[in-house]
Design a protein around this nucleic acid. Structure first.
Length: 944
DNA sequence: CGGATCACG
DNA sequence: GACGTACGTGATCCGA
């Protein structure tokens, strides 16, 4: 056997302690705390995945502490006597570590009287003696004694939390001496956690120095009498006994009897069934899905935890509170505290650290998170356990007395460690907003949970309409808590009488602001547990939640626009529309409001008597583009002019005028706001201004893109997925011809034309393109007929041909609809659900509309998942390549726009391309390549 | 404030 | 026999 064996020894006990302190406090569906176990499980998973890698394991075992007593206690009764008891919510997780290990079918070794470290040392040495490499998965400094090479075999360590390998070099860096002397250093310095005495007054620095100088502990102690009189000399002399005792305590026992032979640790794959059972039991749904994705067909990731009953009850009754509601007292606005002193603030911060999760809400002067000034912060730690910290109240009236408040700088300094602590989960409703507001105060809020996004993940498409797509706080509060929170207008008024939040008296402000935090905290209690039960963990944890800080940063970056260019265009469009308006009036024979479709319809069809006027249900003639084009084709000059007028008027009002006003005076840039819950399919949407619909299709419109520019010395880089939705359709519907065409890099519409019509001409390619889109959108003969300007019968014939030439499409449509009818929701390749409550409606129009949307949602949604994954990975990838200053500015569904120094283009382009092209992996292996086109230039237009 | 229109993917 | 026709968005304007 020439193959190099590689044993991995996992220090399970130490891992779980660190995982506990590093990860937010998650609970499983039954309420058992499982945060640390989850961390442990993902770590094992990662190791199992590395199986086939060069440095991956061939053998693996997990080593645990059997009990707290070991032979060291017989030597020294105070050993580890100072250890504080394990935290209350960690204790129940210890036995789960064994369960998790067994679920992976991995050996789990423990032995009474010995610590895990001793077993690890003994196994490591035994393996090394056989010429195996060994990796110890731990960060325990005691184990660093083992690192090094003997017999041509290497022992190293792996810190999976820091993702760091520890070789000899790293040990030397930490201790100043090689691994063989680490025990001596530890013996001198002692360890307060394990209550190893060491020598009083000697810390790590002195210990390293002494051992490095004298070559060993004994030599250092022996040299003491010869030293010149000093404190150090006395300490060494007096501490000799302690040091020698400590040496015994820290020295690993390397010759324990091995409870199981090494060969039994041979890895031989991970059977799925016991693992699935474990993951399912504890609600680790994201892992469950990965398991299924790895072994079953990734394109048909089935829900191993199918909420059958839930899907049934959802039909017709879209509300779904299947979880028993947590018991909570009713909202009591009088229970909230107004925090006005630093002492009280510090008290709240301290309590928040202890609670390890806190709901946070900021109050500001404006709805624009990048421009907004902070006015106050509210925190909630439990039902009715909330406070408001006013920070900038009473500013506008110079003569009025300002209420007592903690000075802003002091409050920020007090809040910063809490809001940035890895160990405390910050919960917000649309927390991207608060992240941006606090970013201006120098606070990088993390880690976060977002109740709005939780709601979206669970309930996208469920029929609760309203602003925010049904995921706004007021709606969520009504729906899940049965409570109506104070509305903003109740405290600030509306219209002209509206006052800024900073002018609201503190008692009222506290009721409003603290209630929002309280409600958010309560919503989190309702929504978070549903995630694992209903299969939302994978999308939430792996796609949407990681995106929050990424999108927040894109919003803060903004993009530079050339105001002068926009102003020039505005003037140009104004004079052109003015000229056209006169000509239109002349042709109409009277003056009227060209922008009024109603007046225009009456003029065209009643006064001028053009044919083809159709009134809609509003009793009004339709005058939209297709109608006017029809009239223009008949030779109606007025229709041509109205079309041109509309084109220019649209560009002026929506873009050249509006964008100028959106330039942030402080940054000189335009900062859009992205909604992560804007589109039912999982796409982002962009508002204030919408930068996802900047003109591109006409030459005149493209002039507006020329106004989007980089800073001096920089370029804009646009990277877009080529035909991503068609590629996904080819994969998901498993269409051989299309997959082959994409694999060969063919022009897909031309290939479609060839298949459909037997020849590729301008006309057949255009028709093929229309048909391809029709497929993605859920086809109907009438819709296609209208687009292609043919009879419905002919359109139907084309559809039939399409289905015949591209087998798989019809089956995909059928299976998708069957599944949605049955379960109530559609699903992307990554498990994002979109609900279709009207899919079984008796109203045909409603039902058919849902059917078309349901055919499209998995495709559009998968595309959205993929670009979101690319976005989440982009900055880490660029950072790693030393390209951290490349700025990702915009996302337009299948396109990402970056700003970067000219000199970085050649290095960044292939990197960006790779991250985007690889974004589906490893969760999903597509059977078509993802193509990415990249361009750069001195404007957004030029970058295309 | 709803409808019509049109900008984008 | 009538229904009413492509998926997903957001901004602006008109007119009630």
């Amino acid at each position: 056997m020439a193959e190099q064996q590689h044993l991995y020894l996992v220090d399970g006990s130490s891992y779980i302690f660190r995982a506990y302190h590093r990860l937010p406090p998650l609970t499983d569906p039954e309420g058992t705390p499982v945060g640390a176990v989850y961390g442990y499980t993902t770590m094992l998973w990662k190791l199992a995945e590395d199986l086939e890698k060069a440095e991956g394991p061939t053998h693996l075992a997990v080593i645990l502490d059997k009990d707290s007593k070991s032979f060291r206690n017989e030597i020294y009764d105070q050993y580890k006597a100072n250890r504080p008891p394990a935290p209350e919510d960690l204790v129940p997780q210890f036995p789960l570590i064994r369960d998790a290990t067994r679920a992976f079918s991995l050996p789990c070794i423990e032995m009474a009287g010995y610590e895990a470290d001793d077993l690890i040392a003994s196994y490591a040495r035994a393996a090394q003696a056989r010429g195996w490499n060994v990796t110890i998965v731990s960060s325990d400094k005691d184990l660093m004694q083992l690192v090094g090479e003997q017999n041509g075999a290497r022992i190293d360590m792996l810190d999976t939390m820091k993702n760091q390998r520890i070789f000899r070099e790293e040990v030397k860096e930490k201790f100043g001496v090689g691994p063989e002397l680490v025990g001596d250093v530890l013996a001198l310095m002692g360890d307060s956690v394990d209550n190893v005495p060491g020598i009083f007054g000697i810390g790590p620095k002195t210990a390293s120095k002494l051992i490095a100088e004298h070559g060993s502990l004994t030599a250092a102690l022996d040299a003491a009498p010869e030293m010149k009189p000093s404190k150090l000399k006395d300490r060494l002399t007096e501490g000799r006994f302690d040091a020698e005792l400590s040496k015994v305590l820290v020295t690993l026992k390397e010759d324990c009897e091995l409870p199981e032979p090494l060969d039994d640790f041979k890895l031989d794959g991970v059977p799925a069934a016991p693992l699935a059972a474990f993951l399912g039991k504890h609600g680790f749904t994201s892992l469950l899905r990965r398991l299924d994705g790895g072994h079953g067909s990734p394109s048909r990731a089935t829900d191993l935890n199918p909420p059958k009953q839930q899907a049934q009850s959802d039909k017709g009754a879209p509300e779904g509170n299947r979880q028993p509601l947590p018991e909570m007292p009713p909202i009591d606005r009088n229970a909230y505290e107004t925090v006005q002193t630093i002492e009280r603030l510090e008290h709240w911060v301290e309590r928040a650290f202890a609670a390890r999760q806190v709901a946070v809400d900021t109050e500001t002067s404006s709805l624009d998170s990048v421009a907004a000034d902070i006015v106050g912060v509210s925190l909630a730690l439990g039902p009715n356990d909330a406070c408001y910290i006013p920070l900038a109240h009473g500013g506008s009236d110079m003569f009025a007395e300002k209420p007592q408040q903690v000075p802003l700088a002091d409050a920020i300094a007090a809040l910063k460690p809490l809001l940035e602590s890895d160990a405390v989960l910050k919960i917000g409703q649309n927390i991207k907003y608060d992240i941006n507001v606090l970013a201006r105060q120098g606070i990088a809020v993390a880690p976060v949970d977002d109740t709005m996004i939780l709601s979206f993940t669970l309930d996208a498409g469920r029929s609760h309409d309203g602003i925010g797509g049904g995921h706004g706080m007021d709606e969520l509060s009504e729906r899940h808590l049965g409570h109506t929170p104070l509305a903003f207008k109740d405290v600030c008024g509306t219209g002209k009488k509206q006052i800024p939040f900073g002018e609201v008296p503190l008692d009222k402000a506290t009721e409003y602001a603290a209630e929002d935090a309280d409600v958010t905290w309560r919503l989190h209690q309702h929504l978070k547990p549903r995630l694992s039960v209903e299969g939302g963990t994978r999308i939430y944890e792996r796609v949407d939640r990681p995106l929050i800080p990424v999108v927040a940063q894109m919003e803060r970056h903004g993009i530079k626009v050339d105001r002068a260019q926009l102003a020039r265009l505005s003037e140009e469009f104004a004079s052109e529309t003015g000229r056209l308006e006169k000509e239109i009036h002349a042709l109409a024979g009277e003056e009227f409001t060209v922008g009024s479709p109603k007046q225009l319809g009456d003029i065209l069809f009643d006064k001028l008597g053009y044919k083809g006027g159709k009134k809609g249900k509003s009793g009004q003639y339709s005058t939209d583009q297709s109608v006017l084009e029809g009239l223009a084709a008949q030779g109606a000059e007025i229709a041509r002019k109205v079309l041109e007028w509309r084109h220019l008027a649209k560009l002026k009002s929506t873009y050249t005028d509006a964008l100028q006003e959106q330039i942030n005076p402080a940054t000189g840039r335009v900062h859009t706001s992205y909604s992560l819950v804007g589109a039912q399919t999982g796409r982002l949407s962009s508002t204030d201004p919408n930068l996802q619909n900047i003109p591109v299709r006409t030459p005149i419109g493209r002039q507006i893109r020329e106004a989007f520019v980089p800073e001096a010395g920089n370029l804009l880089l646009a990277a877009d997925y080529s035909q991503i939705e068609l590629r996904l359709a080819a994969h998901m519907a498993d269409v051989p011809t299309l997959k082959e065409a994409f694999a060969n890099g063919e022009d897909i519409h031309a290939r479609t034309a060839q298949e459909m019509f037997g020849e590729v001409t301008r006309d057949t390619r255009a028709r093929a393109k229309t048909i391809n889109f029709a497929i993605l959108y859920g086809i109907s003969r009438w819709g296609l007929a209208a687009r292609l300007e043919v009879e419905p019968d002919e359109a139907q014939a084309m559809i039939d041909t399409y289905f015949q030439r591209f087998p798989g499409i019809q089956r995909y449509i059928h299976e998708t609809l069957e599944s949605v009818r049955e379960r109530g929701y559609s699903e992307t390749l990554f498990g994002r659900k979109t609900w279709f409550p009207r899919i079984n409606s008796k109203n045909q129009a409603e039902r058919q509309g849902s059917e078309r949307a349901a055919i499209n949602a998995p495709i559009q949604g998968t595309s959205a998942d993929i670009i979101k994954r690319a976005m989440a990975r982009m900055m880490p990838a660029l950072n790693e390549a030393g390209l951290g200053h490349v700025r990702m500015l915009l996302q337009v569904h299948d396109e990402l726009v970056f700003e970067l120094p000219e000199g970085d283009v050649s290095k960044a382009s292939p990197m960006i391309e790779r991250v985007m092209a690889e974004a589906a992996r490893p969760a999903v292996e597509l059977s078509v390549p993802l193509g990415v086109d990249i361009g750069t230039g001195t404007s957004w237009d030029a970058a295309h």
